[in-house]
Design a binder for these strands. Sequence first.
DNA 1: TCGAATCTAACGAACGTTCGTCAGTTATCT
DNA 2: AGATAACTGACGAACGTTCGTTAGATTCGA
Lengths: 192, 192
Amino acid sequence: MKSTEIKEAALKFFTIHGYEGASLSQIADEVGIKKQSIYGHFKGKDDLFLQVLRDAKDTELSSKLTYFQSTLDEAPEQSLYGYLQLVIDLFQKNEHLKFWLRMSFFPPAHLAEAITEEVVDLEDQMQVVIEKRFSEWIEKGLIHNSDPSIPALAFIGVVDSILLELVYVNDEKRLCKKLEASWSIFWRGISS
Amino acid sequence: MKSTEIKEAALKFFTIHGYEGASLSQIADEVGIKKQSIYGHFKGKDDLFLQVLRDAKDTELSSKLTYFQSTLDEAPEQSLYGYLQLVIDLFQKNEHLKFWLRMSFFPPAHLAEAITEEVVDLEDQMQVVIEKRFSEWIEKGLIHNSDPSIPALAFIGVVDSILLELVYVNDEKRLCKKLEASWSIFWRGISS
DNA sequence: TCGAATCTAACGAACGTTCGTCAGTTATCT
DNA sequence: AGATAACTGACGAACGTTCGTTAGATTCGA
């Protein structure tokens, strides 16, 4: 399917150069067609971008939800630490997550509204799932706290700081040190 | 001084639209001159950008170093929490920090090398200062740990997660909740 | 002190290039 | 034969950049 190839190339260049910096001719070159041919598959640049955005969102959301579904019976320590490693994996394996991050933080101005809508939706869904899990752990006495939203938000903070490190400079050594540091302090902070 | 005005306008548009998305005519319009006149003050777009970048770096670095200098005798709890609030303040008061973050994460490809050099330099300087402070606190028994780099990296992680929240959606309520959550867990994790 | 020379900062016009987009044509395959 | 998907060609607009020029201020020697 050619439109899939086009979307993959678009994802790549949008990720590297941003919306304004990525050109249709670059994308077409990557696929091996002329830029005008893209209009046979998409209405225009905006249409292509928004389809890539929704694909990236679906990919990311289902990966994360599937993970949490598969660790229902694990202890908090395994489940949470595994999630951090999943995020690192997702980031390094494919470009969807990096694209998603770039467009969440710095969306092209004329599409900011549509993008923010998708971002908030995904963010809320994840927070609900994580918070529910924490409240179960608190009931079982595995986690020290009364309000589940506090450790949940703190954990999302740890995830964010790791993501930021990944975007920053992808230095394996530095990443590991930071992961271990943040995780050990976080775990000591929430364990009962 | 006109070149200062130009740099301020450039900072604004580079922050909103990125390097590729910001045009010299926009910037010139903001100042009230024609785009050609910019070439009387700067060699070109790259030159303008790099000067703005270095200004932003200087501003940020000196703000942070000055803060740490001024809290030499404070307890770790006050000093660290105050730093978090300083960062929030810097972000909301002027655009330098947002510009700096955008260009650290997603630099224009053809200037990536020059930008990364500045970023790493600033990052290293801050880490040295913070780590030194933590090792003093550990010596005094105020902080639970043997290796000062662990709480230091974890703290930088908390700072990062707050920065990310600021970039994300600037919702005051959400920011406060996240700050309190991350801080309380972090503090419980490092205090002895 | 006065005019000449130099400097400053802006200007309009145009350069070549690239952008996204639209229309019409050709090739390929059921 | 009809449909799909690529193609060629062209469009106006915008981009960063260079050029030559103008108007006003500053400097300086006679």
